Simulated scan of single mutants.
Amino acid sequence: MSDVTPGLGYNPEDLADIPGTTIFTTASSRRAYHLHRFCHSLGKADAREAFKADEEGYLSNYTMTEEQRVAILARDYNQLIQLGSNFYFLMKLASTDGWSAQRAVSTMSGMSTEDYAAMMIAGGRSPEGNRSIKGKY
């Protein structure tokens, strides 16, 4: 690893080394604070019912960016990750829709749930093109 950035404990440049990988950082967590508060609220049955009854109205209770709101309404998990969220919070949204983790992740991979499951049973995605650019990992 390169020299660390004071206060972070790591060099941010090292986080961009694996193609297609978004690293959840303190900065991304801060960007997604209100998004995570929304997701966390879905841990309560009455909140899930209120959200399902009026998604846009329920989202108005949270100070999220317009991009975050649009991505939630579209269930665009890849975009939500790019906007700072992490998958563990997003699973509350997926669960509210009755989705399994497998189904949510399959939407992120562009595969059907069945194709995604078959790929994982066969050993997962190929490491080709998914390794460290600098060859360290």
Rank of each mutant, 00 (worst) to 15 (best):
G123N: 12
G123S: 10
A122D: 14
V105S: 05
A50G: 00
L35Q: 06
G84N: 04
M119R: 14
S2N: 11
Y62D: 03
Y88P: 01
G124I: 03
N61Q: 03
P19R: 07
I121P: 06
I81R: 12
A104H: 01
D97K: 08
A118G: 09
A117C: 05
A47P: 03
A53V: 09
A122H: 10
P6A: 08
S60Y: 07
T107V: 02
Q79C: 09
T113R: 12
R30L: 13
A101G: 06
G43N: 06
M1I: 14
W99R: 04
S109P: 01
H34M: 05
F24I: 11
N78I: 14
A104Y: 00
M64E: 02
E67P: 02
E49P: 01
I133L: 14
Y88V: 06
R37D: 10
E128M: 10
A47T: 05
Y58V: 00
I121K: 15
S112M: 02
S2D: 08
Q82D: 15
S41T: 02
D17A: 13
E66R: 10
S106N: 03
P127Y: 15
F51G: 00
R31M: 10
W99D: 07
K52P: 04
A50R: 08
I23R: 12
D97N: 01
I81F: 05
Y58H: 04
A50W: 01
R69T: 00
G110C: 08
T107P: 00
L80W: 05
R125S: 07
N86A: 13
S2F: 09
F51A: 00
S100H: 04
T65E: 05
A118S: 09
T21F: 10
N130D: 10
R30V: 12
G135N: 14
G123Q: 11
P127G: 12
Y33V: 10
G9P: 03
T65N: 05
A104P: 02
I18H: 15
T22P: 13
Y88I: 03
A16T: 15
C39A: 06
Q68W: 06
R31D: 12
G123R: 11
E67W: 04
S112F: 04
F89M: 03
H40F: 09
F87W: 09
S106T: 01
D115C: 09
L8C: 07
Y58N: 00
K52V: 15
P12T: 02
M91W: 10
M1W: 08
L80P: 01
N11F: 09
E66N: 14
R31G: 05
L93W: 00
M111C: 05
G43I: 02
Q102L: 06
E114L: 08
E114S: 10
A74E: 10
R131N: 11
E66G: 07
L15A: 14
S95C: 04
G84P: 03
R69M: 07
L80D: 10
P12A: 09
Q82W: 11
R131Y: 15
K92E: 05
